[in-house]
Amino acid sequence: MAVEKPRAIIRRTLLTDNQVLRAILGICSSLAVTNTMKNSLVMGLGLSFVTGLSSLTLSALRSVIPHRVRMLVQTLVISAYVIFVDLLLKAYLPDISKQLGPYVGLIITNCIIMGRAEAYAQSNPPIPAMIDGLFAGLGYTGVLLIISLIREILGFGTVFGMKVAFEGFVPWTIMIMPPAAFFIIGSIIWAISARQAKQAAKQAR
């Protein structure tokens, strides 16, 4: 199989094959941390870092890992990088680390990382695998930022902690509570699949 060009990988992972919106992977953490944009950004970058490096490592090691124990090896490699991110956050961004709480550790069980390792890194050379993983993570970050932008503006009247709402704006408390996250991501996925259905109908005609 020919190796994909980096530009094609970036386009695929960011847009056409976005892991959150198209593959519905990595939902757990993407909903929990999206109450503020700052948390989303940190979480997204952490995940991109882990996905990129674990895809790189696993792809470099792909010929030496026995097929039967690969899941175990994947989990171990991913955990090692997550520990690295966790320590880094604790040292440099202790406030955010506290707010994210268990969700940093839960990057390990984020299906996107395992998914990229299984679907791409296993059968491709290290550098494209790293680009694939990194941009799959950035695609996830993008979705997180969109959700948290809606939630933060309506819930707190701020963007990245800066006040943008007009005087007398009443924050929508529901936006910072869990149900809003479900509604927003549901609506985004609905909008995308409705658009696709329309396009498909147009082509069929």
């Binding site: 149900p179 549901g186 409705a194």
Partner: peptide, 23 residues
Amino acid sequence: LPPGIRGPALSFIITGIMAMAFV
């Protein structure tokens, strides 16, 4: 149902309503 909602989008919206009830 309206076009395009079937699948994950519907599950998310149902879950959202359930979450509101539980809150």
